[in-house]
Design a protein around this nucleic acid. Sequence first.
DNA 1: CGAGTAGCCTACCAGTTCACTAGGCTATTC
DNA 2: GAATAGCCTAGTGAACTGGTAGGCTACTCG
Lengths: 150, 150
Amino acid sequence: MLSRRAKYGLKALLALARTGGDEPTRISDLARDEHIPKKFLELILLELKGHGLVASRKGVGGGYILGKPADLITMGEVVRILDGPLAPIACVSQTAYERCPDCPDEQACGVRFVMKQVRDGIADILDNTAITDVIAAGTTKKRRAAGRRS
Amino acid sequence: MLSRRAKYGLKALLALARTGGDEPTRISDLARDEHIPKKFLELILLELKGHGLVASRKGVGGGYILGKPADLITMGEVVRILDGPLAPIACVSQTAYERCPDCPDEQACGVRFVMKQVRDGIADILDNTAITDVIAAGTTKKRRAAGRRS
DNA sequence: CGAGTAGCCTACCAGTTCACTAGGCTATTC
DNA sequence: GAATAGCCTAGTGAACTGGTAGGCTACTCG
């Protein structure tokens, strides 16, 4: 499950990427346009800033801009920051591996076997989709974006 | 995230499928062998029974057996029963669709666009993997089970 | 310089979910 | 009819979710 935190964070980043320039966007504008509770968004952006995905300027004329090129920000990165590991179960996570206490032989575990495939499938999509890809798909959305991935 | 409920449920079903026959297995045996809290497993099996995935017999010599052929029980079905929809976000769910209140145009939503792919990826794996497939993969696990899916 | 703006930071909170546990009831078998 | 094994309802503590509140700090512009 994608939390609202992650959903809001993704929406905000997409919005920032769409406006493009180095003119910062205020939290309140972002919140209004994307229908996100302002104070909550504040927290989310702060966390994204901590990971360098966005940068901010204070005072009049301040706000947020992207912290690095939009094509270097992947959906996977954002989701991992805001929601933690992509893996449905810790014993198949690349970034937060932890073994199940109740598993005598990990290699023989059927649940793990299947969930590993699921994790790989999710990661394959999210780590290979940058926010630029999403925006591009959006602008050409009427004619079924084919061959989306590199 | 896969809850423990779902994990335990899957493990129990796999165990029941492995023993195969029509000799029922007791909850307490299942719990001991699979390292699952007994009372918790009881609840889980009860729910699976409600959906016909397992059947039970009471009294001496009683216990649980599969409620239908193992090759007709998919991982997706089990996860949906115990954990709800596979979709990471409700607006892309097939079984529990719900529109986001904060989305003016669903077709244009970038988050939805990507999460739809994720949902489809997850469903493709889980709905096409029956518990027999998992067991088969386990017995041949040393030589890299290739071409797993139909 | 100083007023206003806009982000920063800490704290708090209600509601829900998760992972169990308790304990009695009921059906079945021998 | 006693033992067994599943059925069923309830409860519970801890963690997480999705916010809100409110003051502080940095920055800009006149």
